[in-house]
Simulated scan of single mutants.
Amino acid sequence: MEPKPMNTSSHGIEELDHLMTYVADLDAAGTAYERLGFRLTPVSNIASMGIANRLVPMRPRTPGAANFIELMGVADASLLPAPMREVLSGAPGIKSMVMMTGDAQAAHRMLVDAGYPFAAPSHVRREWAIPGEGSVWPEFDVLLPIPAPLKFNVCQYHNVELYLREDWLEHPNTAESLLAAIGVASDARSAAAYFERLFGVAAVRSADGGHAVSPGRTELVLYEPAAFEARFGCPAPAAGDGVAYAGMRIAVRDRDRLAALLDANGVPHARVGGIVVDPRSACGNVIEFVERTP
């Protein structure tokens, strides 16, 4: 079979794949997300980079991609690559969007030629110990984050099927897929322009004031503070450089079942557009759960 041609207009980026969320205490963060009704993977260490993570895998929206929340903590600060030192520090919350590409080397060339200052891809092979089953070894090539209005990096999977175990994709809260990364900007239209150029598509403004742009199906949606507060019913995060990550939108099969689970676990939530959990319960992230649509 011939490989799929690279999309040059999006610099080889095919999908917004997952969201890297920094947490200071990985155990506590895992407990918090379990209270939200998510099923998490076991802890995995990327020893060469001094980091550890747990994932909330969901159902991919694009072939070849994954779809998950990554809770990431520091295991050994002395081993952190320079681009990760700033990312894995400060307040908890989303620190980077991770884009999927089918060819990291080709995407790197296109991005650098277009003025995005990425270092060459790093190849990572890490052990993932599955209790009672032994170990598997995910492999990927990654372009580490660069300065941008909202930091992002790029990943090519070599065995994405390891992230797609059916038992990990079924969640007590009925979560199906990550639909969007949510950000706040003092000027959402201007902030979206950077990503329009990156993805090679125009942003779409919705009735709630969000400006949505995507290289595939999972979106980045940017709101100005007043529109954010009207949509989510909680204060907008401070956007120190004019734009900041705020949270995520997730599709669920059954909002009533989700609400009952949150009530049983003592997690405060509000019904605004969807069911909204504020940052105090989700490691610095607003999470909006919306009903899955066909």
Rank of each mutant, 00 (worst) to 15 (best):
G216C: 11
E139L: 02
Y223V: 10
A191V: 03
V124E: 00
P117I: 12
I250S: 08
A129M: 08
M6I: 15
L261C: 02
A180D: 06
P81A: 04
P237C: 11
L150C: 08
L198V: 11
D76S: 05
Y33S: 01
M110D: 11
R125K: 14
M72W: 06
S177N: 13
P3A: 12
P117H: 10
A119V: 00
E34G: 03
G90F: 12
I130Q: 04
P237Y: 01
L71K: 06
Y163Q: 00
E176A: 10
K151D: 01
E288L: 05
A52K: 14
A260P: 00
T218Q: 10
F195C: 07
A65S: 15
N173F: 07
R292A: 15
L55I: 08
D208C: 08
L26H: 01
R271C: 08
L198D: 03
P147C: 03
N45S: 09
R39Y: 13
A185F: 08
F289G: 02
D256L: 10
Y116C: 07
A264N: 01
M248Q: 13
D17L: 02
A260S: 13
T293I: 14
D278N: 11
N53M: 07
Q156D: 03
N53K: 00
V276K: 13
S206A: 13
S186W: 05
A32F: 00
P149I: 05
R189G: 06
W168E: 12
L164R: 15
A239G: 05
G274L: 06
E161L: 10
S89G: 01
A282C: 03
Y223M: 11
M100K: 10
P42F: 03
V87Q: 11
R109K: 14
Q156Y: 05
V136G: 04
G274M: 07
F38W: 13
G273H: 15
M84F: 14
G183F: 09
R85I: 05
G209N: 04
R253D: 14
G233Q: 07
D263H: 11
A259R: 14
P83C: 06
D141M: 02
G102F: 00
Q156G: 06
A77S: 15
V267D: 07
F118K: 10
A47P: 00
A29K: 09
A264M: 02
